[in-house]
Amino acid sequence: MVAMERIGYLFGGFAALMAVIYGLWNDFSEPVGVTGLVLGALLGFMIAGYLNITRRKLEGVPPEDDPLGEISDIAGDYGFFSPHSWQPLFLAGASALIFLGLAIGWWIVALGAALAIPALIGWVFEYWRGPHAL
């Protein structure tokens, strides 16, 4: 976590320095580039600050910062992933129709939305069982 924090500070400092150099190079007459670089610097500092606060809240040394740590020290539960769900495929097809409709016609957007709503509901409630199942 310390390495990621340092990378965030490094990126933020580099972007801030480049914003100043870029601004001086064109006498601050072109604001879009300076604004983009300042926002990039703020993003780097924000990520580094978040990692700093999170690291200080943790007790002890995190497994990724322990020089004597093993790979198995950081292993954990990554969650549940559905092995055979068809719902993402249906939702992807409906989303493709929605984006196609933005280019061709609004009636295709309505068709895609009508297909996306049941696909999304089916994916969210796929593993509900019992008296409250859909």
Rank of each mutant, 00 (worst) to 15 (best):
S29V: 07
P67G: 03
E59R: 15
V38N: 06
L37T: 15
P67W: 00
D73L: 07
V61A: 02
F28S: 08
A75T: 08
A94D: 03
G40Y: 09
P31I: 08
L100C: 07
I71E: 13
F45M: 01
L111P: 04
L51K: 12
T54Q: 12
E70P: 03
W25E: 12
S85C: 01
G69C: 08
G49M: 01
H84F: 06
V109K: 08
M46L: 13
G44P: 03
I98H: 00
L89E: 01
S72P: 04
F90P: 00
W86S: 09
S72W: 12
N52W: 10
A96W: 10
Q87E: 13
F90Y: 06
A113F: 12
I104W: 01
P31L: 11
S29A: 09
A41V: 07
I71M: 14
I71L: 15
D65I: 03
V61W: 01
W106C: 03
I21Y: 10
L58C: 10
P67I: 02
R56T: 08
E59K: 15
L37Y: 11
A75W: 06
V38L: 15
D66C: 04
F81G: 00
G40L: 13
A75K: 08
S82N: 12
G93C: 00
R56H: 09
G23H: 08
A113C: 14
N52A: 14
I98V: 15
A92E: 10
P63H: 12
V34N: 02
A75R: 05
G49Y: 09
E64V: 10
D73R: 11
G49T: 14
P31D: 10
G76S: 13
G93V: 03
A103Q: 02
W106M: 00
G44D: 07
E64R: 08
L111T: 03
E30Q: 09
I71G: 09
F81D: 01
D27G: 11
S95V: 06
L42Q: 06
A103S: 00
L58E: 14
H84G: 04
P88A: 03
V109M: 01
G105C: 06
A110K: 08
I21W: 10
F81Y: 02
